[in-house]
Computed example of a mutant assay.
Amino acid sequence: MHAVVAHGPGDLRIENLPEPSLATDKVLVRVVYGGICGSDLHYAKDGRNGAYTIAEPLTLGHEVVGVVHQVGAAVVSALPVGRRVAIHPARPTPLPGGVHGAGFNLIQGGSYLGSASTSPHTQGGFAGFIEVTPEQLRGLPDELPLRTAALAEPLAVAIHGVSRLGDKVKGANVLVSGAGPIGNLAILALRAAGAAKITASDIQDFPLEVARQAGADDVVRLGSGEKPQDEGFDVVVECAGVVPSVVAALDAARRGGAVLQLGMLPAGPLPVHLAGLIAKELTFFGSQRFDVELDAAVSLLAAEPRAAAIVSQVFELSEAVEAFACAADSSRSSKVLLKIGADPDQ
């Protein structure tokens, strides 16, 4: 099978790897689509993602969907061969259908598909086939195309973060700072959670066009003389993951408001002045991946036709290098997918 493998900084290869030999307690999934995430881009460009450095060849990809291909002989209960599925990328894995957080996203020592956080590394899903445990599978409703279902993992990240805000979202005037894929998926999650008005801000025009299609009520093009109103928002969701955006988020939140940090910030000390957080009695929420929210993400994607607009390009696996370059350019892309296998929906 062909796979997208990172070997180090700037060394991304398409390689022919052996298909997994299925363990009796596992399920083999034929991968159809994989979404390129910011962590994939970091591994490909820098050879590392945050504190985790590639020490051996790493097959990338954790936003993957496909079709059940084979079920191990010892598996007691699993989705049947041919069933279209999304894959929960974390182990330990919450059981399907869970609605109460298990806290698995905060457990030390777990693993995540396509991650160098473990030794040996946890190989990812940008490959023809992937072997997973039965509890990692989430069956997809017939009305949800696999192409849109590829958004389930990052949407679960957004839903988890928004859920941390609790009742602060309902009826709120919200700013989403950074209209990349996670920002635009946050728009879907915020709308589903009852936000009254959602404004998206970004430095590029293209992401803001996608934000409107995803359901933003208003957009602000930063650098054009516009800026979000200081203290004008009940809730600010920071999705860019850069210090100036964090500073602007603290400025934009009203007194007694809240800031949710969804964007991944660099490790180490950051020059962020927190006096405003204290003076305005802001509540600042961190958010780490997701826990049980993949089921909710699948349901929301099936019910929300605007989600499809967030997928901006689809590349064949053989075009992976070009796909990564496109995904790294926010002036022309939102969520970029790799088409890894034949799509039964087409």
Results as ranks from 00 to 15, higher is better:
A309P: 08
L270T: 13
I278E: 10
V85I: 14
A200M: 09
H88Q: 13
S163M: 12
L95W: 11
H160I: 02
S299H: 08
E304V: 05
L165R: 05
R255G: 06
L301E: 03
D40A: 01
E322G: 09
Q204S: 11
D295L: 01
A193P: 05
I130H: 07
F126D: 06
L106Q: 14
A323Q: 03
S115V: 04
A302H: 04
R191M: 04
R212D: 00
G103Y: 07
V298A: 07
R221F: 05
P89A: 08
S77E: 13
E209W: 03
A323M: 03
A116K: 02
L41D: 05
R83L: 09
A253T: 09
K26Q: 13
V29R: 04
D234P: 07
T93E: 12
S117E: 13
Q136I: 04
K26H: 14
G232L: 10
T118H: 10
A303L: 14
T24P: 13
V176G: 04
A90S: 15
A192G: 09
G180V: 01
G223R: 00
V4E: 07
H273K: 15
G171T: 02
T122F: 06
P80R: 10
L58P: 02
H69F: 11
P20E: 08
A342T: 15
V243S: 02
G82T: 15
I340C: 08
V292D: 04
D11I: 07
C239D: 06
R255P: 00
G225M: 03
L265Q: 14
I159G: 01
P18H: 11
K45Y: 06
L222Q: 02
I310C: 05
D217M: 08
I87Y: 02
V67E: 07
D142E: 14
S312P: 03
F233I: 10
T24V: 15
V157P: 00
G110A: 11
Q288M: 12
S312V: 01
F284Y: 14
N49P: 04
R83P: 03
I187K: 01
L28P: 04
A252K: 03
A308C: 13
G34L: 11
I14C: 09
T93G: 11
I278A: 14
A296Q: 12
L262V: 06
L58T: 10
N105H: 15
L113K: 11
A74C: 08
E304W: 07
G215N: 08
S177W: 00
L17T: 12
G128C: 05
E63M: 02
L12K: 04
S330N: 12
V31T: 06
G268T: 11
G114T: 00
K168Y: 05
V314M: 04
Q108P: 09
L155I: 12
V99C: 06
A86Q: 05
E209K: 09
V29Y: 04
A214T: 04
S77N: 13
L208S: 03
G232W: 07
R191L: 08
L317N: 09
A90G: 15
A23K: 12
G125A: 13
V64L: 13
E143Q: 15
P80L: 07
P344N: 09
R212K: 13
V298L: 09
T199M: 07
T199F: 04
Y33D: 01
G61T: 07
